[in-house]
Design a protein around this nucleic acid. Structure first.
Length: 431
RNA sequence: UCCGCGAUAGCUCAAUGGUAGAGCAUGCGGCUGUUAACCGCAGGGUUGUAGGUUCGAGUCCUACUCGCGGAGCCA
């Protein structure tokens, strides 16, 4: 008999099917077993009545422990008592493997215990839902750019230098060429791509060796970075808001069930539509002062400041024209006011903070060289980057979206460590 | 790096300085509609480590280890 998946059972009502999976939980009542089967696509309760199955099958049910694997044959029945709406009346069952003392019980566990068993924790319904949302977000990202005529130009992971100079990077010996560093951003390479192909994006893992110890940080995370030749800051913001709307609406449309498992208030996500509010850094500082903050002009917005600003809006807010001093060397200064950078951060609502950071890039050779010197960066590794300004430089802009922060926000999670299958944090390298 | 909190059964947690306990999980028994099922019985402990105070320390003190949360940095 051909295999059927739980997510497709609606098409098989009244039919005999064979399901393969793992035991999520079971209950018994003397001469009847209720086996909750998990197959990766969903959950279904299988009902085993002693009188309806061959000799031996009923006693096999007794041997099944949590996460034991088995296959089961039976008839699909619609049942309003079942959480999924369907049940399976079992005619036969055979065991693949008996699981011995599965550590993650259907009770509460501490975070360290679960993190140590991340490889098993992924089987639980909450983690299952998060991974499904994550996948849909990544698909939306690719669909969006592919559908807009962007070309994927992946940046290298091993790089000779820091792209922004400030962060602490992971270092590794590289043959006779000294040390290589794990990339913290593909942006500089994406700029080269944009000059070659016009509209590009890179999408891959990035690494930060900073000892950040918060619910918003990982040492290894995924970032998607579009870069567009001839775009200015306003074009950049237009792209960011259109992109974000597409991602959120795609998830709402295709992952309703998963968001329900996560008990996410989707009303707040429905709001994520164009246009997103745009405020200047100056206006953001005004908001902070109005709310009683002692924030000083010239500083970067901290986590708490971001939360106060984003609380004033019912959807993500774009903060632009930051003080140049707190932003990276490659960001273009505002011609109207050289103290400001043509930069934008998109802050997610509900305290989730910065999910996008972007800017128009410095396209003038002399100015860019000056910035590199100001930041005391070594010039040699940036020679290729300066070439982009030597040979047909044009205005261009782009941004980076942090995938895990986006997943965390859309799922409404407490901590970013649940957004990636195997999180890497300052004190966690395993499993 | 700095500040705060924590570590007791496999797990989640209780225990006024005076005999270390419960629920879940595990094992055995009962139940033909259970929904983190329920009922009965049983096994399960070097209280993170090392010192100290005390007649007596899970509890008080010191140091260390590990973890959690926050700051800084950032997506």
């Amino acid at each position: 008999m051909k295999r059927t998946y739980i997510e497709n059972l609606a098409e098989h009502i009244g039919e005999d099917v064979t399901l393969h999976g793992w035991l999520y939980n079971k209950r018994s009542s003397g001469k009847i077993w209720f086996l909750l089967l998990r197959d990766g696509t969903g959950l279904i309760q299988c009902v085993v009545a002693k009188n309806n199955v061959p000799e031996g099958v009923f006693s096999d049910c007794d041997k099944l422990t949590q996460e034991s694997s088995f296959r089961v044959k039976g008839k699909v029945r619609k049942d309003d008592r079942a959480p999924g709406g369907y049940e399976l009346d079992v005619a036969d069952l055979s065991i693949y493997s008996i699981s011995k003392e599965y550590p993650i019980t259907p009770k509460e566990h501490g975070i360290e215990f679960l993190a140590d068993r991340r490889h098993l924790w992924l089987r639980s319904s909450r983690q299952h839902a998060i991974m499904r949302v994550r996948h849909r977000i990544i698909k939306a990202i690719r669909d969006y750019f592919d559908g807009q005529g962007f070309t994927l130009v992946d940046s290298p992971i091993l790089t000779p230098n820091a792209s922004e100079g400030t962060s602490t990077l992971f270092e590794t010996p590289y043959f006779d060429l000294g040390n290589a560093y794990l990339t913290q951003s593909g942006q500089l390479y994406a700029e080269a791509g944009a000059m070659a192909l016009g509209k590009v994006y890179c999408f891959g893992p990035t690494f930060r060796a900073e000892k950040s110890k918060t619910r918003r940080h990982l040492t290894e995370f995924w970032m998607v970075e579009p870069e567009v030749a001839f775009n200015d800051l306003n074009d950049d913001m237009d792209l960011a808001e259109d992109f974000l709307e597409y991602i959120v609406q795609s998830v709402l449309k295709d992952r309703e069930k998963e968001l329900k498992v996560l008990e996410r208030n989707t009303a707040l996500l429905q709001n994520v539509k164009k246009p997103l509010p745009r405020v200047t850094y100056d206006e953001a500082v005004e908001i902070l002062h109005k709310k009683g903050s002692a924030f000083e002009w010239g500083n970067d917005l901290g986590g708490t400041d971001e939360t106060i600003v984003s609380e004033q809006f019912d959807r993500p807010v774009m903060v632009h024209h930051y003080p140049a001093a707190v932003k990276a060397f490659y960001m273009k200064r505002d011609p109207q006011n050289p103290k400001l950078a043509l930069a934008v951060d998109v802050l997610a609502p509900e305290g989730y903070g910065e999910i996008i950071g972007g800017s128009q890039r410095e396209d003038d050779f002399d100015t860019l060289l000056e910035r590199i010197k100001e930041e005391k960066l070594p010039e040699a590794p940036f020679e290729w980057y300066l070439d982009l300004r030597r040979f047909g430089t044009v205005p261009h802009a782009g941004f980076g979206l942090g995938v895990e922060r986006t997943v965390s926000w859309i799922c409404g999670l407490e901590h970013i460590r649940e957004t990636i299958p195997f999180p890497r944090m300052i004190y966690r390298l395993t499993p």
